[in-house]
Nucleic acid binder design. Sequence first.
DNA 1: CTGTTAGCGCTTTCAT
DNA 2: ATGAAAGCGCTAACAG
Lengths: 300, 300
Amino acid sequence: VLAAVDALSYRPSSIARGLATNRTLTIGLVVPDIANPFFPEIAKGAEEAARAAGYSLLLCNTTEDPEREAQILANLEEKWVDGLVLCSSRLPDAVLGQFLARHRAAILVNRPLPVAEMPPDLPVVSVQVDDALGARLAVAHLVGQGRRRIAFLAGPPASYSGRARRDGYAAGLAAAGLALDPGLSLPCAPVLAGGIEAASRLLAARPDLEAFLCFNDLVAVGALQVLASAGRQVPQDVAVIGADDISLAALVTPALTTVRVVQHEIGARAVEALLRLVHGDDTGRATVMLRPELVVRQSA
Amino acid sequence: VLAAVDALSYRPSSIARGLATNRTLTIGLVVPDIANPFFPEIAKGAEEAARAAGYSLLLCNTTEDPEREAQILANLEEKWVDGLVLCSSRLPDAVLGQFLARHRAAILVNRPLPVAEMPPDLPVVSVQVDDALGARLAVAHLVGQGRRRIAFLAGPPASYSGRARRDGYAAGLAAAGLALDPGLSLPCAPVLAGGIEAASRLLAARPDLEAFLCFNDLVAVGALQVLASAGRQVPQDVAVIGADDISLAALVTPALTTVRVVQHEIGARAVEALLRLVHGDDTGRATVMLRPELVVRQSA
DNA sequence: CTGTTAGCGCTTTCAT
DNA sequence: ATGAAAGCGCTAACAG
């Protein structure tokens, strides 16, 4: 028999097995934009953890579009994925809750659990980074250098990370006894162009600002470019701090001071937690909070 | 009936459908390293094209490990994927041919068809970039600036792109009437660290070199760093040209002159071609050759 | 403990 | 035309 198996190079069909067992050994990974340097490293960590446990990843890209995200989530139901790793969901709590309820298990990355909107026994855990803490660390660093007029390039209003970073920014200022000046904050798209646009507008409106705290490193690089073309020295005239520590951060000039987020670990921890839910080793409802770390380079 | 469908929010099971129809509407995307900035954009292009046609992507990361790649290819068989997009395969022709034969259809990205090793009717097409042309353009640009001692950071010896670029490098030198100096070439890992190591070794051995032509942009950034810490001005003392034009290339200082490869299009063209094979609209055995383009920035 | 069979949820073929 | 049934390749629950 085994000889025949070998001779015909028979492979068990995981699709038939899936139908019979109700398990596909596949998990859905949905990200807003795989081309955004924040996500590939998460995907890598997730893929490695998944493969180590015999699982495969279905990669879905929402293009930052909530409608597309909803379609994808619905599509993933039909695929019978064993679980879901959902990164930076932009869906409102109520909608998200509905979709989650139709899945067997899920991990939310960078987004708190929509507790009020979920069936009470749904196995979901949230993997987050303490973005508020990160922003506080960054503000404290700037304040420690004597900077007071600290601008905030806030990222997308719908981003939970953005909101947390905003809270940390406010808390950091408060801790230093500084007033929060609404004129120093501006939302922006989480990409280079967003940083360029927001930084130029802010710099034009408030030429006296002393630092940019940025939603992420891409935005920070945008700010760097704006400052360079405005002839402002970094960090002497204006300091810049990014967030995430994507590989780019160390390579630009001046090298970016940033709040490091361990993307690879996020991905790995997310699927590990997911598989614990899937296997029933854990019942969910938890939040894994990762600690960010300030990486001081040249820009601040 | 339709009311019930809605009330119970029934979804057809694509897994049962897959078993019945022998088609899963899923294609396998295998890349050496999704965290390498060259691949996420390919993945994005592929995902978009796939989703537009109703297909999903199974993402597989080989970690640049041929053994892992073989496992993954075998695993993908069991998953009954409708087709395969295989990027930068590091498998020997014979082995690759075996694996391909066990799939319904495949696209090879950045790798020529192992024609001698494939069943003659297998639907496979290769999507490549004319790397030799790219290297020739780069050499011509350098020569046009009067540079003669042009070093080549060649990338991994097993890389087909690397070999093509080497050929183009040699051809470019020949076209300019320059001799190929073996002491000016060095293989390297296709990442920043590889560039740093190879560039320092080459610079130490041949301090008179006038330019670095690099396997990819990451390697080129490594070379940039080595030159900066050696106190050599770029491009005045030494010019540097990268390859691929990843987003990083425009953001480093000095901005990198590079040979642009349209990654997004590679991904999109690859799955479009694949779906044509899958649907029988095309019988395969072709090579889609994309033209690279020299993007002149500051480093050369 | 091994061998048989029903059934997973669909599609497709075949009768009605 | 619409409806019943067979079967995709496996697993799990059964009987021997």
